[in-house]
């Protein structure tokens, strides 16, 4: 009973609407252009909805794999987060106590200086050698391709493997490097590469340079390939060859690539962990201890997860500074 009345009511309403539409359609064509019809509006809304749906996977991915860890780490750094927390879920709020403890520790300044030296040394070495090799491989000579792919090897090896091998190479008594230097009569006694407080950081930086060269070489080589030959031809007519060609053609053209390589390099190097743990464990006497290794130590060896997180956040902030620098630099180069 009620169903039939509803149906008839709906029918009459639909009729009225159809009439109204026909009327507006005939005498109001202009208005239709400017204000969208309900049908159009719903289509637009649906399009909007689809746009959002396409964003969902990316947003979910970012929220789960980037947002959650970052937020969790920040929250953790303000908590007394211990092994018990994992079982009970209780982590008392301690405010800035973790930061105060970590930043006032006598080890922090050592780690900070080591991190700076490690990053600076690694980046400088990787970049200079990588650029030199990239320019070298610009020339055409036999076996160029094979040699270039062989140079990628350090990049392909798992870091644990390369650090184990280097640990053996750099050993004081039976290491290959000292044997080699001994045969050449450069040194008489074993050089304690990894066990002297003054040499260990240099040795670790050296190994990290070796690992970083392929990355620098590959990206810079790609950048060099992009520079049109005509520029060099025109330059040589004006007398710009050799160093001058590099200074006035290669370098300015390569600058955007250089800034990418440097900033990514800094961010990658700041967080280096496995190589240092594999080579020296932060020793001897903390001389290769960086913020990354110290943070790892606090969290996973001393189980002070709150302090480890606080130190980790300090590292994130330092990385962010470089990321912002990069964004500004890349914006400027686009403007140019």
């Amino acid at each position: 009973m009620s169903l039939t009345t509803d149906l008839s009511q709906a029918k009459s309403r639909a009729n009225q609407r159809a009439k109204a539409r026909a009327k507006s359609g005939s005498d109001n064509a202009q208005a239709r252009e400017t204000s969208p019809s309900p049908r159009r509006r719903s289509r637009k809304r649906r399009e909007r909805l689809f746009q959002w749906l396409f964003l969902v996977p990316a947003v979910t991915y970012m929220a789960l794999l980037f947002g959650y860890p970052v937020v969790k780490n920040i929250v953790m750094s303000f908590q007394d987060y211990t092994t018990a927390t994992f079982f009970t879920g209780e982590a008392p709020w301690v405010g800035l106590a973790n930061y105060a403890k970590v930043l006032s520790s006598s080890l922090f300044s050592t780690s900070l200086v080591n991190t700076a030296l490690f990053t600076l040394g690694s980046i400088l070495g990787q970049f200079v050698i990588g650029l030199a090799l990239a320019i070298f491989f610009q020339r055409k000579f036999p076996l160029n391709g094979i040699l270039r792919s062989l140079l990628l090897l350090p990049w392909l090896l798992p870091l644990i493997v390369s650090s184990a091998v280097w640990r053996w190479i750099l050993d004081k008594d039976s290491g290959a490097l000292n044997r080699f230097l001994g045969e050449l009569h450069i040194v008489n006694t074993g050089v304690p590469w990894l066990t002297s407080t003054s040499l260990a950081l240099i040795a670790v930086v050296g190994v990290n340079i070796w690992i970083g060269i392929p990355f620098n070489l590959t990206i810079l080589y790609g950048g060099l390939q992009e520079i049109p030959d005509e520029l060099y031809e025109a330059g040589s007519l004006d007398g710009a060859t050799g160093w001058k060609a590099f200074r006035h053609i290669t370098w300015p053209m390569l600058r955007p690539v250089v800034s990418v390589v440097l900033v990514l390099g800094v961010v990658y190097t700041l967080k280096v962990l496995d190589i240092i743990l594999g080579l020296t464990n932060g020793g001897p006497a903390n001389s290769t201890q960086t913020i990354a290794t110290q943070s790892y130590d606090l969290s996973f060896h001393e189980f002070k997860f709150g302090e480890g997180a606080a130190l980790g956040n300090v590292l994130v902030v330092i990385s962010l500074v470089f990321a912002v620098l990069y964004l500004r630099a890349s914006r400027r180069s686009v403007d140019e």
């Binding site: 004081k172 304690p192 066990t195």
Partner: peptide, 11 residues
């Protein structure tokens, strides 16, 4: 220090 143990012991 007197060399009866290698300083490599540190690593």
């Amino acid at each position: 220090k007197d060399g009866s143990v290698s300083s490599s012991a540190l690593n």
